[in-house]
């Protein structure tokens, strides 16, 4: 019988979160960059605020470069991709070499973008590889618990980012619905109270985005009311 250690379940969850974070932030960043370029040149300040990352950038140019590629900035897309890689590389036997290879390719693409004269266009390759990673994970990972925990991480991260970015409530509701279908099948412990509250809060208008972020981030961290979901 296949077994999964606590470490691996944790690493799968965070691989899901970080790869989704890289994917969504590059896409969100690309959209904003388009307007930062010549329309709302200070929009990056608002972006940092929403993402709860310190605005350490001196200009929009500095933001573009460092937010994307600064290895020493823990909030940069580069750092998040490296965290995804750190989790992926220790999961080869769970996710398979083929699936892992797309995260490795995303790292190579990121390093290429970093030294490119036109870095932003090269980030598309990173996005492509993350997409391929998810496609391969869906197709190639046989063990249900492995695939589900990975996807759960993706789901949680997506709700977190969407809420931080104050996206349309309809989009967030859709993701919360997906989360409901996913969380119970993973075998992970979670707080039923938090999940119920999350389901309630996304229906209330105006949407309390901060509360959504809190609920989703506390879903697995709270010490009480935890239940072990069945397979």
């Amino acid at each position: 019988m296949a077994i999964l250690s606590v470490e691996h379940s944790d690493q799968l969850f965070w691989l899901g979160r970080y790869s989704e974070r890289v994917y969504t932030t590059i896409r969100g960043f690309a959209e904003r960059f388009d307007s930062v370029m010549d329309v709302k040149t200070e929009e990056y300040v608002e972006y940092c605020k929403r993402q709860e990352i310190p605005n350490i950038y001196t200009s929009k140019e500095d933001f573009v470069r460092r937010y994307c590629f600064d290895e020493s900035d823990p909030n940069s897309i580069y750092s998040n991709l490296m965290r995804a890689f750190d989790n992926a590389v220790v999961l080869r036997e769970e996710i398979g070499s083929e699936t892992l290879s797309y995260i490795q390719l995303a790292v190579y693409a990121m390093n290429k973008a970093k030294v490119s004269d036109a870095p932003l266009i090269h980030l598309q390759r990173v996005v492509d590889n993350i997409m391929a990673f998810w496609g391969m994970a869906d197709d190639d990972i046989d063990r249900d618990c492995v695939r589900r925990i990975l996807k759960l991480g993706k789901q949680v991260e997506r709700i977190d980012i969407y809420a931080r970015m104050k996206m349309a409530p309809k989009k967030i509701k859709k993701e919360v619905k997906r989360l409901n279908g996913q969380v119970g099948k993973t075998g992970l412990q979670y707080s039923m109270v938090r999940l119920a509250h999350l389901n309630y809060i996304v229906e209330v208008e105006p949407v309390d985005y901060d509360q959504i972020v809190e609920d989703v981030d506390q879903l697995f961290d709270e010490g009480t009311e935890k239940i072990v979901a069945g397979f």
Partner: peptide, 8 residues
């Protein structure tokens, strides 16, 4: 023993 993520 190998400790599974469900504690088994």
């Amino acid at each position: 023993y190998f400790v599974d993520y469900s504690g088994k």
